[in-house]
Write a protein that binds this DNA or RNA. Structure first.
Lengths: 147, 147
DNA sequence: GGTAATTTATTGCACTTGCAACGATTATGG
DNA sequence: CCATAATCGTTGCAAGTGCAATAAATTACC
């Protein structure tokens, strides 16, 4: 094996890389603010959002709809509970399940976080402008595909 | 503060979230294979790619062009050196800098990895089909914009 | 009905990560 | 020149992560 010829390859055109960089940039924007002002991480934010519009939910439920490992959900929930933002109860009709729900404090937090997220989404949409539609179509192709 | 009304918010339409999910899905595809067959992680892969087409490079150089923290680069480089894929030398004209370069073994590795990456890129492009162009235009808007 | 198989959530472990602090080297400027 | 500042790469530390193993509860099946 002596100095094989390597194919041309440009990382900056490689879609997994480009997407990772773009995703990090978008997350970073809000995440830094959520972290510094509210002490909330991305996994915690996802759990909170899901609880905000679906009443009592199990860990399994969140895992499925929010694209996180169950252990990640579990630990995020533990942290949120310690902070007083959510309550964990046992579902009495199936005692394996939890019922997670926002506390009053949690709802108050979301009343502050959600407007920021909505404004951020608008910022991004404005930045994408006429490319927004095509961009979202591409996202659907990547994420949505069967299998 | 009693049960404030929360604004409507759908996480599955939130661009930072959608992008994160899509990015993870795309990375996962190759990363799993690189990891199981070659023992290479994503940070290591990025360093390797950069070395494959730019001869002798410093850690700082990679940090700048490959979107990773310098400590991440440093540790990836350490692992790659232990595995025998790259060599670290001191730049004698500025002894603070390193000169990273692929070893023969490293070039041989890349001769196997790069074709897989190229094929994967083609798969993704095929999946995106007519949405590819619009999707990339959106990516540029997100990543490219000044600041 | 009782045992085995499944499901749910948590946890132990090893590893990775980001951040700040650090030592080493080089640049700056009086 | 000498002291101060800036740059480069590494590392300590606390925290987060994925994965497998586990305990508790429920379901399935003979």
């Amino acid at each position: 094996m002596t100095a094989p010829k390597l194919p041309e390859f440009d990382l900056t055109r490689f879609l997994p890389y480009r997407l990772a960089v773009a995703a990090e940039k978008l997350s970073e924007g809000l995440a830094r603010r959520y972290r510094s002002e509210f002490g909330i991480s991305v996994p915690e934010w996802r759990v909170l959002v899901h609880l905000a519009h679906s009443g009592n939910v199990s860990v399994r439920d969140i895992e499925a709809r929010v694209a996180m490992e169950k252990s990640k959900v579990s630990r995020a929930a533990t942290r949120l509970e310690s902070a007083g933002y959510i309550a964990k109860e046992i579902n009495e009709s199936d005692r394996r399940l939890l019922q997670l729900s926002l506390t009053t404090k949690g709802r108050a937090l979301m009343a502050r976080l959600l407007p920021l997220a909505i404004a951020y989404q608008d910022e991004i949409a404005a930045r994408l402008a006429e490319t927004l539609e095509g961009f979202e179509a591409g996202l659907d192709r990547i994420t949505g595909g069967k299998e």
